[in-house]
């Protein structure tokens, strides 16, 4: 069992425009990338539960060319609204960092 932070070279989140939030989990090499990808730990149900969004609204892509797992969700609060807490969406990846990845 390892934490995602021990396997990824970069975990980040960012606006994809004011209405979408996108997450990138990037790995140093193909081997680690495939291990995490194939573990299925990053899946639509987990993302849906963590970010309180409908499973059908989670867009999940395995991007082999860059050894990256990416997902995009509707922004929980649109950028710039009174209730928005993260103008760039840059810190919404926090709970992913210590996610357990099974061996």
């Amino acid at each position: 069992m390892a934490r995602l932070r021990d396997l990824a070279k970069l975990i980040r989140s960012k606006n994809a425009g004011p209405f979408l939030l996108t997450f990138d989990i990037m790995f140093e090499n193909r081997e680690v990338y495939e291990k995490v990808r194939d573990s299925g730990v990053i899946n639509k149900e987990m993302i849906s539960a963590l970010y309180a969004t409908a499973v059908d609204d989670v867009h999940l892509v395995n991007y082999d060319a860059a050894y990256a797992i990416k997902f995009t969700i509707p922004r929980p609060v649109f950028q710039g609204e009174i209730e928005d807490r993260d103008v760039f969406g840059g810190q919404q990846y926090g709970p992913l960092v210590d996610l357990n990845v099974p061996d």
Binding site: A16, T22, D24, V61, K70, T72
Partner: peptide, 12 residues
């Protein structure tokens, strides 16, 4: 390759 990830909902 990673750059098409940035601020973009889908890298493809």
């Amino acid at each position: 390759a990673a750059h098409t990830l940035y601020e973009n909902p889908d890298p493809y």
